[in-house]
Design a protein around this nucleic acid. Structure first.
Lengths: 215, 215
DNA sequence: ACCTGAACACCGTTCAAGT
DNA sequence: ACCTGAACACCGTTCAAGT
């Protein structure tokens, strides 16, 4: 069982979600395709278990965080840790928190985040919504990352930055009367860092939360 | 071409993303499977074009919004309109804004959102991040919706609320020492409304933005 | 310019049968 | 308890051939 998950994660890490097939996995395990069904009832369950397996490591990282006297700073540190893990494993974005039933570690992570809100002056409903908002920011930012890059980028014929620049160039050629905003931000878009984008989104949410909590 | 997209959207609306296969689509169009490839180079392109097709309607709704003297209120109204569309077409969440190259309407929608930030006292970078944060909140909340509900719910054997309650019940049985936060919010979770959750997340982001803009 | 039938290579899943 | 080979029903995609 353990090795099924380890190899599944290895496949996901090496070549993304489409690479994880029962046939590829069976080959790596040196067995038949049907064997996997003894450990797992469906591909969905395989994905859920593989996801929870790596979320376990993220959870350990989060538990190792020092912690401070400011719950909102602690929330930020946890969310950043989680996002970092997704940056390194883009496929995580699509499956994380999909099924809190099987995904026990996801639930523990949810609890860890939520516990910080207990230190804030909020109603239960506000706490529930606050944690949803934070995981939403993480997932919303991560979905971008989860997309398979076009094959030119995978080939190495074109770098990720060049790919962005090509987009930016197309935007620059748009009519500036019709697209004033696109022109305003095209230089920011060109070569932008996904992590910066995430941190800004997170900071807006946390600023709103701080205001709400009067902290 | 038009009818290809109309029927593709119809299939997606009726039974979700897995229902859209070339074979099912060809049958509805009364032709062969290969014919579709004359209009579209791949399934990815089909999905992109179908998505952009419906985003066109959302864009029209957003352009019909009255508008106010508060850009942040206008941003909220636009985001809510967009989220509403995704609530009624959950499959949208997974494909919306995936490819701004082909998806011309998505770009126009992005422009519409961004133009509101031009009315705020922000830097170009802050504007770029603000719009990313808002679309991130929409997508982060929508991903939840896009998940195929378990077949018991599709069957009608169990309502959506009953499904939530069953989860809530499992949570209530967790150790309250180990999961204080889960216990704190379980009554909020039970029977919660996705739209409320989204609006709260959006409001936190917009509150943060208002603070940043000093408006 | 537009459509077709038939094939190809690949999926997840099942099942009777083995140890 | 654990594994297997072989089949099944289904995918997206291609291609030579038709009008």
């Amino acid at each position: 069982m353990e090795s099924v998950l380890t190899e599944a994660v290895a496949l996901l890490d090496e070549a993304g979600a489409p690479a994880l097939t029962f046939r590829a996995l069976a080959q790596r395990l040196g067995g038949g395709v049907a064997s996997i069904y003894w450990y797992v009832a469906s591909k969905e369950e395989l994905l859920d278990r593989a996801t929870d397996h790596v979320v376990g490591a993220v959870l350990a990282d989060i538990e190792a965080l020092p912690g401070s006297d400011d719950p909102i700073d602690d929330l930020r540190a946890m969310a950043v840790t989680l996002f970092d893990a997704i940056v390194h494993r883009p496929w995580l974005g699509a499956y994380f928190m999909r099924n809190t039933d099987i995904q026990g570690n996801a639930l523990r992570l949810y609890e860890k985040l939520g516990r910080q809100t207990l230190r804030l002056d909020l109603s239960a409903r506000q706490r529930f919504h606050a944690v949803s908002a934070i995981t939403g920011v993480v997932i919303g930012s991560a979905v971008d990352l989860g997309q398979e890059p076009p094959e030119e980028v995978l080939d190495g014929t074109v770098t990720h930055d060049e790919f962005l620049s090509r987009f930016a160039q197309a935007w620059r050629e748009l009519d500036s009367e019709e697209f004033p905003f696109v022109h305003e931000i095209v230089d920011e878009f060109d070569g932008h860092d996904d992590v910066d984008q995430f941190r800004s989104a997170l900071d807006l949410t946390l600023a709103g939360l701080r205001l709400q909590a009067g902290a």
